[in-house]
Design a binder for these strands. Structure first.
Ligand code: MN
Ligand code: MN
Ligand code: MN
Ligand code: MN
Lengths: 216, 216
DNA sequence: TAAAAAATTTAGACTTGTCTAAAAAATTTA
DNA sequence: TAAATTTTTTAGACAAGTCTAAATTTTTTA
């Protein structure tokens, strides 16, 4: 199988690939908190294993084999996050670091049984889709609340920023996955928004509105 | 914190310490499937960290700090084994290897919540005691069925051999933790035993009788 | 389009954990 | 108790993964 470091590189490349077709050495270094020189070394190893397509100075893409591994790691990460929140009652801002370790537990049978135990959840606590055992999941487009006009509404379905600070803020404001929101006002001066969420009005900055996603 | 290798060494030393006060380099090498030279290297590191007492050629003992870490790893191992059997319905012979990986997940809060989620089990699926968060557990003496005489009885409470082959054999014979057994006959020729277990009589070899333990 | 800046790779080094072969110490045997 | 055997340690090497500093390539800027 693959080492822990290899798994982390593949996962990072997958996530970065969602924004850019070719992923650069520096992007990976930033994501993994390591140095560009270390990334170059690992890219050679992953290319030797045919898990990425790599040409010097050109950036990388995942091969089908590499993507399969990445999606399996992501499946494990998200299923463990779901477990931690739904069964062990952690808050959604507390689980990411634990899942970063748990995603490397290797047994496939274990993760399939965990999936069944939790009745095949489709999304993790942050609204991100959980791939099935074959790596398949529905890709829906989400859009930021910032893209809405006054009187438009939607259902909170994801976040663009996964930092504990942002998640904690949202949790305190009751801006959690599944909540129905409606834009009641947009302040001209700073483009902040007033939302109707259940019985209450909540005032969020443009920054927050850009990072909070609704289903289209 | 400690590396994965360090944790495995401490755990092995703990287990070996139950049979011998001083644990030898070769014993550790055998337990960890590594070479004596590698063990010597690691013993120096663990001694530098004050986790073991080590004097060249003399074997090792755990310090209080080392034992605390070992018991915490063992707590995690056994709680995850319990989870795998009770919640994910694995068989008792299938869980050890998975727990070998899961025991290294670092969060203490996670394991305390897992403990609570399962309602604070006292024993793992093999009858071994689960230390509490402070490393405490009741030490009861168990004895092998081989030590019983005809007409004596007991409750199956542990195994001396944890190999999947032995556990599978016991499972098939319904010789599982908690079962009440009574010795109905001991065959002079090979010292094999006939046990009464619930409604049925089961014939076990001396080898099996030595490795199957009952509460005293 | 040549110079400057940024990105990437290479070179060489370091740590952790492992190994084999050889040396040293401890234990067993005769 | 001296020789033989076993156990343990030392010496030197290697792979994985990382780093800094320097060289190279690409991209941007003027
Ligand atoms: Mn996460
Ligand atoms: Mn998540
Ligand atoms: Mn086990
Ligand atoms: Mn066990």
């Amino acid at each position: 199988m693959n080492t822990l470091a290899e798994e982390n590189y593949l996962k990072s490349i997958y996530h970065l690939s969602l924004n850019d077709v070719n992923v650069s050495t520096n992007q990976i270094a930033a994501a993994l908190n390591t140095k560009a020189a270390s990334v170059t070394d690992m890219l050679k190893k992953l290319a030797d294993k045919a898990l990425i397509n790599y040409a010097k100075y050109q950036g990388v893409t995942l091969t089908a084999a590499g993507e399969k591994i990445a999606l399996h790691i992501i499946r494990k990460h998200r299923l463990w996050e779901y477990f931690l929140v739904e069964k062990l009652h952690f808050k959604w801002d507390e689980v990411h670091e634990m899942a970063e370790e748990m995603e490397h537990i290797s047994s496939i049978e274990l993760i399939d049984r965990l999936d069944k135990f939790m009745d095949y959840p489709k999304h993790d606590p942050h609204g991100d889709p959980i791939p099935d055992r074959n790596g398949n999941f529905k890709k829906y487009e989400l859009k930021p609340i910032a893209a809405l006009n006054v009187n438009e509404n939607g259902i909170i379905s994801g976040v663009r920023d996964h930092s504990p600070a942002f998640l904690q803020y949202l949790g305190k404001q009751q801006l959690t996955i599944g909540k129905k929101i409606k834009v009641t006002e947009i302040i001209d001066y700073d483009l902040s928004m007033i939302l109707q969420v259940e019985q209450t009005e909540i005032h969020i900055s443009r920054e927050v509105a850009k990072n909070l996603l609704i289903a289209i």
